[in-house]
Design a protein around this nucleic acid. Sequence first.
DNA 1: CGTGAACTTCACAAATTTCTGAAGACAGCG
DNA 2: CGCTGTCTTCAGAAATTTGTGAAGTTCACG
Lengths: 184, 184
Amino acid sequence: MPQESQQQAPRQTRQTQQREEERAGAGAVEVAVDADVMAFIERFAAQLVEAGMPRMPSRVFAALLVSPDGALSSAALADQLQISPAAVSGAVRYLAQAGLILRERDPGSRRELYRLHNDQWFETFTNREHMLVRWESTLRTGVYSVGEDSDAGRRLAETAAFFEFLQRELTGMMERWRVYRTTL
Amino acid sequence: MPQESQQQAPRQTRQTQQREEERAGAGAVEVAVDADVMAFIERFAAQLVEAGMPRMPSRVFAALLVSPDGALSSAALADQLQISPAAVSGAVRYLAQAGLILRERDPGSRRELYRLHNDQWFETFTNREHMLVRWESTLRTGVYSVGEDSDAGRRLAETAAFFEFLQRELTGMMERWRVYRTTL
DNA sequence: CGTGAACTTCACAAATTTCTGAAGACAGCG
DNA sequence: CGCTGTCTTCAGAAATTTGTGAAGTTCACG
């Protein structure tokens, strides 16, 4: 991938297109979002889907990621993504459960805000610790079932060892990331 | 063509795990597999599915993993897993494409053998290099779209940096694994 | 307390995925 | 050459997943 650092062209044009269809009329909730940004949302969401996240949660999450404050209301999400309130509700439940967003509510308001849970969402997203544990556990049972002195047993045992190794490595890796990111 | 007059027997559910019975006749291909091992296959396959692999490829792969030689014929797979030859064909195509198995054919035989590609299948399975590259690339575009001096831009940029970091780390990690595994 | 805004739940329709039977293609063998 | 065993392709049935409309619930506020 190209390494572009030096001559960053004066690119402010992107941020200035923010008002295509702002209704002058009664309290329009919608904040028109740049077509480029919408395209990114869909592209990013598609990759989340590919990684296993359901479609609506992916789109909602992507929209939150590029939102100025990292937070949007239910209505804003429904409007921007052209989906029903029910779809927003489902997506938001999924994301909250996954620990990726937080539900906020201004006291004395019926309106909820959904906010990115922290600025390190990808740590949550890539955290597969519990999965690795289960893989290892399943595999160890398998070793027992096929007999540990068989070829199959040795295959499974090595796989289990790999997942055990992975668990240790990933922990260390995240520590290195936290250090590294302060240098960015 | 609707076949309503034909009294279609109730669809055999996949859950009904029929006991593998050795046919008395000569040349029975099937090798009865222990119920414990079958249970492991299904459990392991379920975890592969959870990780994103389609059901049939997962089951086929699991069956190969616990097979004595790490290889089975199409017929053996169909029989053991109670699936149609078509399903085996599809699963095997998927697995070969993914680089997890190898197709073998004894010269002068019409029968194919599917063999685990190597004893380090999990290296292949966990190799997400290309994915990471695409994530990073998508994210960099996003930074550009939202403007790199916005909050959203900084969020995306940090995420991109994380995926770049991951790419480097995973490479090193696999090297450490190869060293470590020789000590097992 | 009643009203209505805002979110949630539910049942169903639509879209998608998955597996099967059946026909097809390919290759060894008589 | 044609037969037969083995794998592949294909159309369609079944199951599953998804998203919507509409009814239900909750709660701030009058």
